[in-house]
């Protein structure tokens, strides 16, 4: 159930981000369904493969998409349980995404392109730096509630009184930033730049086309919805009515999308060398949260 919700939210998330950006720039902008139209267009197209690449390049997008799909199955939404849930499942969540990333990276290296190699090196480095922030953040929430699975952590989170909303605010900020890094969006990466040298994720998929490209786009959309669903969970615990939960889910997803759009519109990308520092700040913020809880 929660998987379907996340899937549904993923269809419009990127559309809303693009719409927000266009409004901020004073344009009307494309329909919020445009990213989905693009995906359907790509699904109907054929593919071109580089002569340098091997079977790795062909399987990589599928495995990447599969990893994101499985990660979506791990995340619950409110009382709607997840398909996969056990003690410590948030580590599984992080590592499954890592599995997908592993294949994206070697898929990019398979093309023998120097640009794609550079993008993959950055992707590997930044996701390495993000890991501890995620571990400390969810680990601290686990410490607060005495549980280690997503479902239990979020179900018991609101029992901790007023403090849990303060924590939720910081946690939401950190999660949103992790979301931006994992999806290679603005403060860290600029997917819409005209220069391949300055990109991270977009440059890794330069050679993908057709169905593979469609899967990569949809995976990105789902990753957005996924991290926002985690943020939703921080606030939704106290609500018990289903309709209210649904409303809150879509409401917060919408807010997240708009915030992403606003950040993209009004912030410049950091210098690549400053990204590492920025990411480490998140780790220290998560550590701060841990001390607050302890």
């Amino acid at each position: 159930m929660s998987f379907l919700l996340i899937l549904l939210a993923s269809f419009i998330f990127t559309g809303i981000v693009i719409r927000t950006k266009s409004i901020a720039q004073g344009r009307k902008g494309p329909s919020i369904w445009q990213p989905m139209y693009d995906i359907f267009k790509l699904l109907r197209k054929g593919s071109v493969y580089s002569t340098a690449s091997s079977w790795i390049f062909k399987v990589a997008p599928t495995l990447y998409f599969a990893s994101v799909v499985v990660a979506c199955m791990v995340v619950p939404v409110g009382q709607m349980g997840s398909a996969i849930g056990f003690a410590g499942d948030f580590i599984f969540f992080a590592y499954v995404l890592g599995f997908g990333k592993f294949f994206t990276i070697i898929g990019a290296l398979d093309t023998a392109s120097s640009f794609e190699g550079m993008g993959s090196a950055r992707e590997a480095l930044f996701s390495m730096l993000v890991e501890p922030a995620f571990f400390i953040l969810i680990g601290s929430l686990g410490l607060l509630t005495g549980n280690t699975s997503f479902a239990d952590i979020f179900a018991q989170f609101h029992f901790e009184g007023e403090i849990s909303y303060a924590i939720a605010a910081i946690a939401a900020f950190v999660l949103l930033m992790i979301c931006m890094i994992e999806n290679s969006r603005m403060p860290v990466d600029d997917p819409k730049t005209h220069l391949e040298l300055t990109m991270i994720h977009e440059v890794m998929v330069l050679d993908n086309s057709g169905v593979d490209m469609a899967m990569i786009h949809q995976a990105t959309n789902m990753k957005f919805a996924l991290y926002s669903a985690l943020i939703v969970n921080l606030f939704i615990g106290a609500v018990s009515e289903t309709w209210m939960q649904l409303a809150m889910f879509f409401g917060i997803e919408l807010v997240c999308a708009i915030i992403v759009g606003i950040i993209e519109s009004f912030m410049a990308r950091y210098r690549m060398t400053h990204n590492a520092q920025f990411i480490l700040v998140l780790t220290s913020l998560a550590l701060l949260l841990y001390f607050g809880i302890k």
Partner: peptide, 22 residues
């Protein structure tokens, strides 16, 4: 967690550079 990430970097590099590309 850092070690896990770094080992991903290490082995994507080892596999990618030895076996992939030209």
């Amino acid at each position: 967690a850092v070690v896990g990430g770094a080992s991903m970097l290490c082995f994507t590099k080892a596999f990618g550079v030895i076996f992939l590309g030209v």
